[in-house]
Structure formats: C-alpha cells, structure tokens
Design a binder for these strands. Structure first.
Length: 563
RNA sequence: UGUCCCGUGGUGUAAUUGGCAACACGUCUGAUUCUGGAUCAGAAGAGUUCAGGUUCGAGACCUGACGGGACAACCA
C-alpha cells in the first residue's frame, strides 16, 4: 500500500526542469538539450558558481544532453590565463567534465565581427562618436526615456568605414563605440541602443593584438550560445532584464527554428559569508585572508583546502534547490552536508587539541599496550587499528573539571570515566602550577575494565578520547570560525561588510597531540578526531610536522546546554 | 514614483498545475550508545504578506495595496 503511493508520487521538479521538459514535449530544437557554463576568467570559482555548475552540467546529464565549458573572455583588461587553469581544476574537482568542449567567447570574435557588420548593413547598428559621459547622459533614467544620439542616422557606408578603422587602431580607446540601433525610449534600459563594441588596446590572452575592438557581454553571450547550439542558457536573476536584448540579437541572427533560451535562477547567498568576486578579491589583496584558497574562503579551492568534499558540496546544492526567490541560505546546512558525508567515510582517530596530562599511578611504569580500536563504527569495512596506551596519557583540558557542574559526565575528582578503547579510570588527585592552573591529573585504572575484558560492561557516565604521552605526535591544529560575525555582512546599506570581520576566525594551536597512526597522513586526508570534529590535513603539513584544519565541529549538545 | 522579478513554519524548498499545506535543516522530548557523535522513535512550529474578486472549492487564477530585489559600467 505504502509502496504503491511512493511509486505514484512523482519526483518534484524545480521550475527549470519543468521548463526544459515543456520545451522537450513541444519538440523544440528537435529534442536536443545543450547547456553551457560560462565563467569569466577573472577570479576564482566560489560555491555560488558550484550551484551554477551543478545546474548546467546536471541538466545536460539528466536529459541526455551536453554541457560546454565556455570562458567569457571579452574583456582583456580584466582577464588572465591564471584563472583559466584554476577554473578548470575546480570544475573537475567538483566532478564534472566538458570532454573536448572547451570554448572561449574569443573563438567567436570573427563571427561576432561579421554579425556586427551585418547589423550595420541592415541599419541596426551605428558608430557613435560621443564620450562615455554623453552617452550615459542621453541614456535617460529608469523613469525617463533617453535621447537619440546625433550619430544615430549615419549612412551604412560611413558606419562601415568607421567600424573598420576602429579595429585598425586608428582611434583612441573611448573615442568611439558601436551601438545597436533599437529604441532609446524603451522602458528597459538595456534596449536603449546598447553599446556592443568598444575600442580596447590591451592585448588579449588568446588573440593577442589581432583585435582593437571587443564585443560587450550582451553582444557576445547570446550569440556564443547560438554558435554552439546551446538550447538552454541558464544564468542568475540579475540577467533577467537582459533577456529582451538577448532575444533581440538572436532574432537578428537566427536562420531557422533553432534558438537558445535564457532562463534565470536565484544565486546562492550564504549566511556569515560574502560571495561577490570583488569583495573576495579585496580580502585576498588586503591580506585579511592568506589567499584565494584560505580555508575560511567560500571559494572552491578554499573549501577544498578546508576539507569539504565535492560530494558534500553537490549534496548541499541539491538541498537548497533552484527558484526565483532571492534567498539567503544557512551555512549550517553546508555544515550538515559535510558532516553527513564524512560521518560515513572519515576514519576516527584520537587527537587532543588542548592537552592535559593524566598520570595513571597504578599502571606499570614503562609498559605499553596496543589497544585495538574500530576505525569507523559507521563502516565495518574500515577495520581496526592499534593505538598504544601507557602510564601517561593526554586528555582534553575541557574534559576535566575540579568543581564540575551537575551534569558533567567527564573526569573530576573522585569520578570515573572510560578512556575509549582502553580502561575505566578514576581521578584521585591533581597538581597545579604556580599560576594555579591544573597541570596534571592523577588517576588509577581498573585492569578488569579493559575494553573486551571481564568488567568492560561497567557503566560510566563518560567516555574520553586520549593519546599516550610517550607515543603522541605533535601537531598544529588550525581552528576556523566564520569569517564574518554578521549573518548578512553585505546586506547593510551603510556598513561595509569589513566592519563585521570576525577577529577570531582563525585560532592556531601548536601543541596538539595526535595518535601515532597519523604519521603518514597526507594533505587533504580527512579524519574525525573523535568527539572533536572533522579535520583535514593542510598543504602545509609535512611528515614530522603535521598541520590539520578543522573542517567542522561535531554536533555538541553539551556545549549547547552550557550556553 | 518607471519597467521587470519575487513574497509558503526560524531557514531553504514542495504541493503532480484549482481539491483543503509536505520535506530537509534547525529546535525540543525520549530510547540507545565505549564519540554528550551517529542511529531510532516522537513533538512543537506556517493556514501560505494583506484586502477584495472568480469558483462548490484558491498557496496556486484576476485586481489593488504592502514588502523585498533587479535595472541608468565603453564590467560580466
């Protein structure tokens, strides 16, 4: 009965899937689905791009189509090959492939030029000799129509002559532009004779000095879609007002029934995060963070370094969905996604972040036992490992209190606790240093309570992780907190996001103790430090000098109770 | 005082296209646990921004308010 209901109930689709299926059912573009991901190579990809990538490649995948990678490189003054490589790396890391379809808008400069010439010949484009300021003034405002340029009615011959000479380098940058001749009174600003070509003498990273004029975004994007046979051009909401112009150019270009269709979806916003490339660039340039891949950054390389997996990012994107509502997503959902993934996969280890020495006074001096410990209770196939135990161990400072509150299930004078995978110990005394801080805790152990032993079933309130002092590896641990303390740092009109920078976003602890099995850990290896959270080996880590990034803490109800 | 887009539990999304609001995260119980994790069981929480209208029936359709966002770069 229940099963039957499940079968009947259709998967709910988001509005883009619905639109695609409608197009398919109407037989548009002979049933083809072809999308594209069009980054501008002027910065690193961030998790917002991941949302777009998952959609672009995901829709192609779901409907048996293809997705092109196309670099939108129409502005040589801002773009660089440096970014091309990192963008490709990040897309692949996320798990997507464009096969041999790596394209560049600059591949189409010739075709775009020809199209512009054709528009001129049809009286649909003209060269304007006015300054940027004048053109801007004549554009009108959102509430008032614009004025027509005095150059709007030049002859085709004159336009052609000027346009060719613009590209010959005869004129200075900014002295002339090519404009589409549409409607200066349109309520849509983008239709008021938009500039489609400008003079730029900066060499282009791919075409060198071949061109002196470069197409604007609006004149390149839709046409590139058209040239590549794209059927669905998915982009974010802010391009909604560009769509009439997108369609206008396609109308002038198309020769048969095929036409690409632009559909807009909401971009990703995350709480406590800034997402604009400009703001991220500032953080890097001003040294607020250590680089594009600083583990606090929402860039894909930053998240990767932090320890996020591609699976967790794809899962997160899947959870938030695609709509036309401008929403702000809770980072806690991202954290949920990585915990969910790592819970199943990450091996458990013992790592003590803030060590406190415990001496087990009745344990034989110099003795060592190897305790067999499960690597992952969620996945038996990960097996077990041996962890050395001895008379002196480190536990977490926060796991001991001299005067514990009521529900403190950890170590305190007179109280018993289990050292996970080893023995139950009882606190018998403590030593303080001159400053009055607890320097050492003394305990006795009960040999019969060894895990698997005769009294191992005895109930104790708490179980602690530990590391044998004699065998411990020293490690540096970098604890991260949100970069901004405000939920919506860029959402304040009069306050710069920088005002909300969290001074405690990075804490470096250099005297952490981890179990010896971690000696061979390699950068990007991920572990659960039992009870402490998920950690990832940093690129800075070296054998004998381990460095871990905390990805995320475990859920901690005790911490919550304490607040 | 313009055009366009958008308003569903705290947050993000659903509601098979008009049949009486579902899911996830979060929150809160309880069980269980050699991770105060995980797991399991359960609970609270919206009557869909508001007001009219159409309809036997509206979160979906219409009108108008209100609220939020986008648009006036030779950026993308």
């Amino acid at each position: 009965m229940k099963e039957a209901e499940d079968i009947i109930k259709p998967e709910s689709q988001h509005f883009i899937e619905q639109a695609i299926e409608k197009d398919l059912s109407e037989g548009k573009n002979s049933g083809r689905i072809h999308t594209r991901f069009p980054p501008e190579p002027n910065g690193y990809l961030h998790i917002g791009h991941a949302k777009a990538i998952c959609l672009d490649f995901g829709m192609a995948d779901k409907y048996g189509g293809k997705c092109n990678l196309r670099f939108d490189d129409t502005n040589p003054t801002k773009e660089d090959v440096e970014y091309v490589d990192s963008i490709k790396e990040d897309i692949q890391w996320l798990g997507f492939t464009w096969e041999d379809r790596e394209f560049y808008a600059s591949d189409y400069f010739g075709k775009l030029w020809d199209f512009a010439v054709s528009l001129i010949k049809r009286g649909l484009a003209y060269v304007d000799d006015q300054s940027a300021e004048t053109i801007s003034e004549q554009k009108g405002t959102t509430t008032q129509p614009g004025m027509e340029s005095p150059y709007r009615d030049r002859t085709v011959e004159e336009n052609l002559d000027l346009f060719f000479r613009m590209n010959e380098g005869e004129f200075e940058e900014g002295s002339r532009v090519l404009r589409a001749r549409i409607d200066m009174a349109s309520p849509n600003m983008h239709m008021r004779d938009p500039i489609i070509y400008r003079i730029l003498k900066t060499p282009h990273h791919r075409t060198g000095t071949k061109w002196k004029v470069y197409p604007m975004y609006d004149f390149a994007h839709g046409q590139s879609d058209y040239f590549e046979g794209i059927t669905h051009s998915l982009c974010t909401l802010e391009f909604e007002v560009h769509r009439p112009l997108y369609d206008w150019f396609i109308d002038q270009l198309k020769t048969d029934d095929y036409r690409p269709r632009q559909i807009e979806f909401n971009r990703l916003n995350l709480t406590y995060t800034v997402m604009s490339k400009r703001k991220l660039l500032e953080l890097v340039k001003d040294g607020v963070v250590k680089g594009w891949d600083d583990p606090r950054m929402p860039t894909l390389c930053g998240l990767r370094r932090r320890g996020y997996t591609p699976e967790s990012i794809r899962r997160f994107v899947d959870l938030i969905g695609y709509t036309k509502v401008e929403a702000i997503n809770d980072v806690s959902l991202l954290e949920y996604a990585i915990r969910e993934d790592l819970n199943k996969r990450a091996p458990r280890v013992f790592g003590v972040i803030n060590p406190l020495k415990v001496v087990i006074t009745n344990y034989p001096e110099g003795a060592t036992e190897n305790m067999e410990i499960t690597n992952n209770p969620e996945d038996e196939s990960q097996g077990t490992r041996r962890v050395p135990f001895s008379r002196e161990v480190y536990i977490e400072q926060e796991d001991f209190m001299e005067n514990p509150p009521h529900k403190f299930f950890r170590l305190a004078p007179g109280q018993e606790v289990r050292l996970k995978g080893a023995y139950i110990i009882k606190c018998t005394g403590l030593k303080k240093n001159d400053a009055g801080e607890i320097a050492e805790v003394q305990c006795t152990y009960d040999p019969a309570t060894r895990s698997g032993g005769p009294d191992s079933d005895r109930k104790v309130k708490g179980t602690l992780h530990w590391v044998s002092a004699a065998h411990a590896l020293n490690a540096e641990v970098r604890l991260y907190d949100r970069l901004f303390s405000d939920e919506d740092p860029s959402g304040h009109k009069d306050i710069d996001a920088r005002e909300f920078l969290n001074p405690g976003s990075l804490t470096i602890l250099e005297d952490c103790k981890v179990e010896p099995s971690l000696a061979e850990a390699k950068p990007l290896d991920k572990f659960q430090f039992q009870r402490m959270g998920y950690f990832c080996v940093d690129y800075d880590s070296k054998k004998g000098n381990l460095v871990f990034n905390r990805i995320v803490q475990l859920k901690d109800t005790w911490q919550k109770v304490n607040k």
